[in-house]
Every structure is written in C-alpha cells, then in structure tokens.
C-alpha cells in the first residue's frame, strides 16, 4: 500500500474511532480515498493528509486538541473531514455546506450520493449500533431474539470478548 493510503487510513481511524482492521475490512478504503480526490480534488485531499501528518504524535496529550484546532476547526478542512467521517459511517458522500461552497467555490462532483451498492452495505453505522443494513448481511432467522452486539471502541472498558460471547451464553454452553 502506498504511503498516501496509509495516512488516509490512519486519519480515518482517528475520525471514526474504528480500527484500521475494521476500515480495511469494509473493502472500501481505496474507493473512499478516490471519492475524496474526485469530489474535493487531490490538492485539498493532500492538504488534509498533510495537516494530519503535522499533528503531534499519538502519545502527546495535546494531539486530540490539535486535531480539533487544525482539522475539524479549520475552515477549509473541517467540513471535508466531517463529510469523510459520514462517508465511512453511511457509505454516502454528503454534499459540503453552503458556507463552504461560497467560501471555496463549488466542486462539480460535490453532491450527496451513495458511493456504491457495497458502500451502503459496509457502512460502519451498522456495526456501531450492532445491527445490519436493511436488505443485506442478513443475521439469520431468530437472531432478533438476542441483544445487539455493540463493538468495543478504543478507550472503552468493554472487552471485545464480552461483546461476542452473548450468543453462547444464551445457548447455555458458556457460563
């Protein structure tokens, strides 16, 4: 993988709170970087990636504040980063705000659209709420009898193993 997509993945992991493994598991990382390039242009994408690389290192306590100040709070990059986060969660690119377009000029490809049929299916929101996309990834007859399985997020105290043992407890084979 190229350095560019590596940076894109690390940025996306930080924006979505999902791991690189989860993001790559959607099979859509390259398609989403391509979407960003096509909609806002390579130059703005590169500015976003450069701003991310320039953040203090992960172990530095000022990093999260710097992320807010230099990316999410930035006039140019903030709306783009938010649209990118929503893209990962929903598979849909949401049109940038009116204010952004007024300030930086309209982008011809910037409309609200679903990237591809599998982008809808692989939206992180389904995983985040322990559900499945309507009409796809069917979880099996009777699965609705079990509580939804919410994955553990970085910083959360819920261990992943707890989240996945729910079915077996119901089946009575694990104490």
């Amino acid at each position: 993988m190229s350095n560019r997509i590596e940076i894109f993945l690390t940025l996306s992991a930080e924006l979505t709170a999902f791991s690189r493994f989860d993001l790559l598991g959607t099979g859509l990382a390259e398609a989403y970087l391509g979407t960003l390039d096509r909609v806002v242009g390579d130059d703005i994408t590169d500015t976003l990636l450069a701003a991310f690389v320039a953040l203090p290192p992960p172990e530095d306590s000022t990093r999260s504040q710097a992320l807010r100040a230099t990316i999410l709070g930035n006039e140019l990059l903030g709306d783009v980063a938010r649209s990118l986060t929503k893209l990962w969660y929903s598979g849909t690119w949401f049109e940038l705000s009116y204010a952004w377009t007024q300030r930086f000029g309209p982008k011809p490809a910037d409309a609200t659209f679903v990237v591809s049929p599998d982008a809808y299916v692989e939206g992180l929101l389904w995983k985040a709420i322990g559900a499945h996309p309507a009409g796809a990834k069917a979880p099996g007859y009777g699965s609705w009898a079990y509580p939804p399985k919410i994955p553990a997020f970085p910083g959360s105290s819920t261990a992943k193993s707890e989240a996945i043992s729910v079915h077996l407890q119901n089946a009575g084979i694990m104490s």
């Binding site: 993988m1 790559l24 598991g25 990834k137 069917a138 099996g140 007859y141 079915h167």
Partner: peptide
Amino acid sequence: SLLLEAVPIMFEFRNMMLELIRNP
C-alpha cells in the same frame, strides 16, 4: 433445537471472514 441458535453464529462468521479476507 440448538441448531436454530447456531444460525446467527454462522452469519457472524461470514462477517468475521469477510473482514479477514479484505485485510492485507
């Protein structure tokens, strides 16, 4: 009757397998 309870686990595998297979 536990076979019916095994069904959701099979679909859970599918999702786990898809993620493994798509990761470099």
